[in-house]
Computed example of a mutant assay.
Amino acid sequence: MSKTIFVLNGPNLNMLGKREPGIYGGKTLKDIESDCIAAGEAFGFAVECFQSNHEGVLVDRLHEANDRAVGVVINPGAYGHTSIALHDAIRAISVPVIEVHISNIHAREEFRHKSMIAPAAKGMICGLGPGGYVLALHALRDITS
């Protein structure tokens, strides 16, 4: 059985490439997913990518990761600042979770400075653009080896 990593994306990330390119860059979510799949293969992982604008669906995927994956990369989008449900779902599973944000949330509006996910996650990468996803996969390779 190959090691699987889930790459989960929250609300509005399906709009990457169109939405505020000055903040999020020009890459689409499909581009980022392709980068993750290629990096995963290089690291010896199968990567499953998923995006939803619905909080409960992301909770379900986190639960599923506990049985099917060795780790999770999650960009919770705005839910990162508001979702106790995602926080609790991460705490309920035993696989490591790395939180990713394309922009530097600490350099943006004050309401974005606090992450509800960070206290439950193994780590956080923010402000390094779409490359943060590959860095998170690299970290999971090291953590799960």
Rank of each mutant, 00 (worst) to 15 (best):
M1L: 05
S2I: 00
S2N: 04
S2G: 01
F6G: 09
V7L: 04
L8Q: 04
N9E: 11
P11T: 06
P11S: 08
N12Q: 14
L13S: 11
N14Q: 11
G17E: 04
K18D: 14
P21R: 05
G22R: 07
I23H: 02
I23G: 02
Y24H: 10
G25A: 10
G25C: 11
G25D: 04
G26I: 13
E33D: 13
D35K: 03
I37T: 12
A38W: 00
A42Y: 03
G44I: 04
N53A: 05
N53Y: 13
H54W: 00
H54V: 03
D60R: 03
L62A: 04
E64A: 01
A69Q: 10
G71T: 01
I74Q: 05
G77E: 14
Y79E: 00
A85Y: 08
H87L: 07
D88T: 08
S94D: 14
V95E: 05
H101R: 00
I102G: 07
I102W: 06
I105K: 00
I105L: 02
R108L: 09
E109N: 10
R112V: 09
H113P: 01
K114T: 09
K114R: 13
S115C: 12
S115Y: 14
M116Q: 07
M116G: 00
P119Q: 09
A120P: 14
G123Q: 06
M124F: 03
C126D: 00
P130D: 05
G132Q: 10
Y133G: 14
V134Y: 01
V134M: 11
L135Y: 15
A136T: 12
A139N: 07
A139E: 01
R141I: 01
R141F: 11
R141K: 15
D142A: 06
T144V: 15
S145P: 01
S145H: 04
